[in-house]
Amino acid sequence: MTKVVDRKPLTFYERTYLPTLLEGLKVTARHFMRSVKGGNAALQLGDGYYPEVPWQVAEGYRGAPYLVRDQDGNTKCVSCQLCEFVCPPKAIRITPPGADGVPADRPNAEKMPREFEINMLRCIFCGLCQEVCPEEAIFLQKHYSLTGLTREEMIYDKERLLQLGGVHAGIQKWKHKLEEAREQDTFPVKTD
């Protein structure tokens, strides 16, 4: 049940705006005095400010999306194009390998993208690509300050994305699957 709370009518004193004025003056004066005495957090950053001392982002920060390699240095992306489909600003453009393209560089995948581009001018760092990827091949990493002198420069291609992304040491789904499969091949199947 909704309960309607009556708004108390303002007293005359309150309607003169004086209490709010005084309150505002108090708050701002407090902060000002603290800053003047050098007590504010920003002033106490001893080792310097942003461009020289890069900002340390917290764990779980969603920066620019990059492609990652698996522990063997192979491309994890299988060119399924789900991320391309889901990307709200259409920042991703994938060129699939086609029928006679190069096969995947890892044994347990069929294909990998011929070209994979993310336009960082369009990307909004929303993280939907990471969410949707079935292969855990794309992750939002910690870079937040991307700059370039031309628009073309801001379209990151596959090489660059892979290089920036590095090896993702976290979940290694296919490594376990592969080991399982090998085990099944080499060991005799238990027949009880």
Binding site: H31, S35, N40, A42
Partner: peptide, 14 residues
Amino acid sequence: KLSALIQDRVGPNR
């Protein structure tokens, strides 16, 4: 500068 000091920032300083 004043707004920076009131809002616990630093303001233009470089």
